[in-house]
Computed example of a mutant assay.
Amino acid sequence: MEKVSGVHCKTGESPTWHAGEGAWYWVDIPARRVWRLDCASGATRYWQVPEMAACISPAARGGLIAGMESGIFHLALHEDGSVSAERLAAPPASELGEGMRFNDGRCDRQGRFWAGTMFMDMAAERAVGNLYRFTTGEGLSRPFVTGMLTQNGTAFSPRGDVMYLSDSHPQRRMVWAFDYDIASGSPHNKRVFLDLGAQKGRPDGAAVDADGCYWSCANDGGLLQRYTPAGVLDREIALPFAKPSMCSFGGPDLSTLLVTSIDPGTAGAHGWPGAVLLLRPGAQGLPEALFA
């Protein structure tokens, strides 16, 4: 387990491996930063973006697709440190009102971008979050899932025919599975995959490995947990911070996990809150699809 040097995030999120560049990208939401780690050299850098970005995926045309405060953006990150941000789509104001933003998201195996919204003040317990699909051809979809408190945990099975989604709010702590129509990009047959209400931690960001197992960051539990496709917990890794937020497989052999975390800013927080970790958990991941 290795700490990425020189990096501290208030709310590290949405790590993603860019195979073409041999690099990881992730965000620090409140700092409005997009970070990059070059795998070969270990060099890190960041770009300031114009509003909070919470989820990103590499785009086939270059740059990143991002779910931000006011919609879905394309971000072009320039060598001089500047950023070109183009808003591509946004939900109606009635669905993305004041105090809301996009949260967790990633591409399906075909390169469609999925992202959900949330009300940022979690203490308000406002179940107004929705899950959307975005493509260049069809734009932003209607909400496929509604009534979420803190949308999270979006991931897809190796064949792409199962979609996972979590609600990490303390009042929910649920992960659902959906049958996923690969041709149309539509989830259906929603069912409970994991009910974690009685378990330590909350199911935050996640990734799926080559065996189809779901790796979930147990926020507030300080754990990385692997669940089989049948929903059985078969591995658990203790982490040096209480609030892991999301993980991503990468590296040349897709056998390294990058794990982001949240610094709660409380006195006496143990370990390395806000750190970014690299570890080799003995499993291999799957390539992340570029936004098409």
Rank of each mutant, 00 (worst) to 15 (best):
A230E: 15
P203R: 02
D220V: 12
G250N: 04
D253I: 06
P264H: 10
W215A: 05
G197S: 11
K190F: 07
P244K: 03
D263G: 08
G205L: 09
A267Q: 14
P229L: 00
G197K: 06
G251I: 03
H188A: 15
D220Q: 12
A267I: 13
W215L: 04
C213K: 05
G251K: 02
G205E: 06
G222R: 05
F241V: 09
P252W: 04
Y214W: 01
V259D: 01
L254A: 04
N189C: 10
P264R: 14
F193E: 12
A206Y: 04
G197W: 01
L239T: 07
P244T: 03
Y227G: 05
D263A: 13
G251F: 04
V259H: 03
L258V: 12
V208N: 06
T266E: 15
S184W: 09
L196F: 06
N219D: 10
P187L: 09
P244A: 02
A210L: 09
P229A: 00
L224T: 02
A218G: 09
D220P: 07
R202G: 07
C217G: 06
T228G: 00
V192E: 14
F193P: 13
E236I: 08
L258F: 05
S261W: 02
I182F: 06
G221W: 02
A242Q: 12
A242L: 14
L258R: 06
I262K: 13
I262M: 15
D234V: 04
R226W: 01
A230W: 01
D181N: 14
G268A: 00
S184T: 14
A198Q: 15
Y214D: 00
R202H: 14
K243E: 11
F178M: 13
L254Y: 08
